[in-house]
């Protein structure tokens, strides 16, 4: 066994919080959402007027509120990591609960937005814009649901590596929304 294998020097995952496999997942997810957003932006080239008209029916305020909901949720998840490093398990759990509850708030706003669009007659088959809009935001919402489950599991077993790993997944969900929001709601 070489010295590098013994002391871990040269380990590409040195310095990363949480389980290394989570970081492979995070970069994979960024690739998937990146490809979806490139498809969305590419489709806009074929029908810019149609995209603009469809985009005007989106509720920007709800999208904006959800940005603040997720970055606030991310704040609690990040504080949970610091609390885990300080060995304050009770604070870890409270922060994870707050982060997960804000995730539910995000889903509530998203559901309300979908219901409003359905009521206006805009479903997944109402043109390319809405097909891609529902696919991208729906896939992201599924990740929020998955993230809430991860935070709940981590809250039950709040070891440092579990908290770091769960929080990293949650921040990835947050990061994706930070990019989805301007591309889908604001770029015109």
């Amino acid at each position: 066994m070489s010295q590098a294998e013994v002391d871990g020097s040269g380990d590409p995952f040195t310095g990363l919080p949480g389980h290394p496999m989570m970081w492979i997942l995070i970069f994979s997810e960024l690739l998937v959402f990146g490809a979806a957003l490139i498809a969305f932006s590419g489709a806009r080239i074929a029908d810019p007027a149609g995209f603009l008209a469809a985009q005007n029916h989106l509720d920007r305020l709800t999208g904006l509120i959800n940005v603040f909901v997720l970055i606030t949720s991310g704040l609690f998840a990040a504080i949970a990591v610091e609390a885990a490093r300080a060995g304050r398990t009770r604070l870890v759990r409270w922060c994870l609960v707050a982060a997960a509850l804000l995730g539910l708030v995000f889903l509530g706003f998203k559901a309300a937005e979908y219901l409003r669009e359905f009521a206006l007659g805009y479903g997944i088959e109402s043109g390319t814009f809405f097909t891609l809009y529902y696919l991208i935001t729906g896939f992201h919402a599924l990740h929020v649901i998955g993230g809430i489950l991860v935070l709940a599991l981590v809250g039950v077993w709040p070891t440092l590596i579990n908290v770091e790993t769960g929080a990293a997944f949650w921040h990835m969900v947050d990061l994706v929304w930070l990019i989805v929001f301007p591309v889908v709601y604001l770029v015109r």
Binding site: L16, A78, H171, D174, I179
Partner: peptide
């Protein structure tokens, strides 16, 4: 602005400060 936000999130929330 989106890049700036994402960079702040990566540095502080994802805590990549120690993994340059």
């Amino acid at each position: 602005l989106t890049f700036a936000k994402a960079a702040v999130l990566a540095h502080h929330y994802l805590d990549l400060r120690h993994a340059a």
